[in-house]
Design a protein around this nucleic acid. Structure first.
Lengths: 192, 192
DNA sequence: CGTATTTCTTAACTTACATTAAGAATTAGA
DNA sequence: TCTAATTCTTAATGTAAGTTAAGAAATACG
């Protein structure tokens, strides 16, 4: 399992075998069955999770009980509550598994000590965070400038594999519309 | 001018005087008068800018000619087009000055070489990028779960100083509504 | 395999926000 | 200081997307 993470890191920075051993010793394996939580709102999140197998998601629940999905994390993605980790505040995010999944957990304190012992890992995470920020900015721009229909089309282009993996209502929750309205958009699309 | 940047960096990581000299040698001073561009859509952006004085913003223009503001950068903030820098693609963002401003420019290639010569700077930017991602995620959640009125109230809480510095229409553009509707919300608010 | 649960669709009705337009207030800068 | 340009407000009208509800389809799982 850890090999998958090591390969992912090596795709960005080279590691010696001693460094690989250090990483292996600090990371914990964990299974997350479908619908089980890795993390719940209100807790202070200590971990980032690397998805080895399956797919997780992070989301909030608003005062009316509606879920709003912030992130999907398929294989080879990291997922965490960056806001809580950075501000050291209780989380408003839930993280759970959409399908039976396996993850590797890295606590924030281990991560910070890794940055000291293996500076290349600070580079690895710096690059990942830059990419995540670029994507997040793009999502904000889409929100500000596109209609619901256009956001759906972008989603289909960007995550073609997810379309067939996750329920429609999760797509709706990610692009910020109701499942009923998404259903309507899809019906129109087929008609034309 | 550069002293302001050095102080900002030292607020996060300690620097030796040799390191300070290296940074000083790589950074370029530049004035950006009100309404002048630092960067335009279509160009490949080579620089990140640190705002020493004034206030810049980044924004897109949609096909109907409407502006959508991605970021405000008051004093002591960095601004860049992370998407283009990371993906190395032509930008869809414009960056200009809201008021007469002074900035320090750091090219991506200088930044990357600084990461090798002064690893502490990789930490500095890793931390800034984590913070920016946390804020961006929060903004996405606000978008998904709050009404226009609530988003305006959050904006007032988060950027109290900007409210009096920038035009209303820029606030509207940032929170994703028309200036007319913001005007209406404000009128209702005063009434109650 | 069959039942319960979840998800998806359709349709009538509602609402939050956009559009258009025109005048008032503010600000820029010659 | 004066005029032009920009920004802000108000109000009538339009529409994209939400709400409610009820049945159909798909999926989970005992």
């Amino acid at each position: 399992m850890v090999e998958k993470l090591i390969r992912h890191i090596q795709g960005i920075v080279a590691l010696s075998s001693e460094e690989i051993d250090i990483i292996k010793s600090l990371v914990k394996e964990r299974e997350v069955p479908r619908k089980k939580f890795l993390h719940q709102a209100g807790e202070i999140p200590y971990y980032s999770a690397f998805v080895v197998e399956g797919c997780l998601r992070s989301y909030t629940v608003d005062r009316n009980g509606f879920e709003h999905i912030l992130q999907f994390a398929p294989e080879n993605w990291w997922i965490s509550d960056m806001y809580s980790v950075v501000k050291n505040q209780p989380s408003i995010l839930y993280i759970d598994a959409l399908i039976d999944s396996k993850v590797l957990l890295l606590s924030r304190s281990c991560q910070l000590s890794l940055f000291d012992s293996i500076p290349k890992l600070e580079r690895y995470f710096r690059i990942l965070t830059e990419n995540a920020l670029a994507s997040s900015n793009q999502r904000t721009i889409n929100y500000l400038s596109l209609s619901a229909k256009e956001r759906y089309e972008r989603f289909c282009e960007m995550y073609p594999s997810l379309i067939h993996t996750i329920p429609q209502k999760s797509v709706a929750s990610y692009i910020g519309i109701t499942p009923e309205f998404l259903s309507k958009l899809r019906a129109e699309r087929i008609k034309v």
